[in-house]
Amino acid sequence: MDKTVKAEGRSIDSAAPRETQSAAKSASRGRAKPPATTRLGVAKTYKLYINGKFPRTESGRYFTVVDSKGNIAANMCRASRKDFREAVLAARSAFSGWADASAYLRGQILYRVAEMLEARAEQFVTELKLMGVDKRTASREVTAAIDCLVYYAGWTDKYQQVFSAVNPVASSHFNFSILEPVGVVSVLTGQNSALLGFVEAIAPVIAGGNTAIALAPEQNPLCAISFAEVLHSSDVPAGVINILSGYRKELAEQFSSHMDINAIIANSNDASEIKIIQEQAANNIKRVIIRTKPIAPDPYQIIDVQETKTTWHPIGG
């Protein structure tokens, strides 16, 4: 696996941005020192989200996210391949339960996620602002993310009707094709949208009964990890969505090579990254969905990670 990367003359590790294990710029975690009369703020620790729990990375590594003013916004977990492996285990064991959940229930849960996000909208606006997004744009992004969840919540019990088929075979058989989730899906979300892009990438995956391991946008991971807290309070079963933060160059190969991943979705414009993903995916004939630009929610993104299952049965007395 490493061979591919080295053949291109670069090592994944050396290419990783802002190696920060040696020294953090500031011990104050980016908050301005408060005046003596006001209360000292309590900063949130951002951790991984695996199997419905919030562990730190097993590696003990971290990386620093810097806000728009150059202050340290957070020390993020720099997830390792072992964290990813744990996430895949969680996603695999959650798969059959989630895939077998009724479409109605999946819709209810996605709608519940939307409700929880709405309730915490302020928090996400604040996080986006911290990263330099203006208030109006930030609140538009949050509401769009909520609406995206509502949109896919509505699709859960409809895409099957739109995209299934009864096939008029010539022999004396009843023949129908339905959609089933492809399985465990790894998701490398785009960098340019901290919340909306992340939600748009994973919502159609789980709406269709898959389980997912998603990598938070590397330079802008706060919202994605906070979104895990929304999921956690929304009846989403443990393991259905697992969220890691870390270095994309370090993890992209893992996301695409793991033999127990059935499909990979990557929002990417990076030709060399795309090539690596596609090559590694061939290990187990993964389905590869590359999205080079953001696309508005639509049911075809659910179908991208569905398998068609066709069943035959005789018609007779």
Binding site: P168, V169, H173, S177, K309, T310, T311, W312, H313, P314
Partner: peptide, 19 residues
């Protein structure tokens, strides 16, 4: 986990049937 399920039959093919 398979794309074609033959129930009480097997190895049936038809142009209208996805495979």
């Amino acid at each position: 986990r398979a794309g074609v399920i033959w129930a009480n039959t097997f190895n049936k093919f038809d142009p209208t049937s996805p495979f």
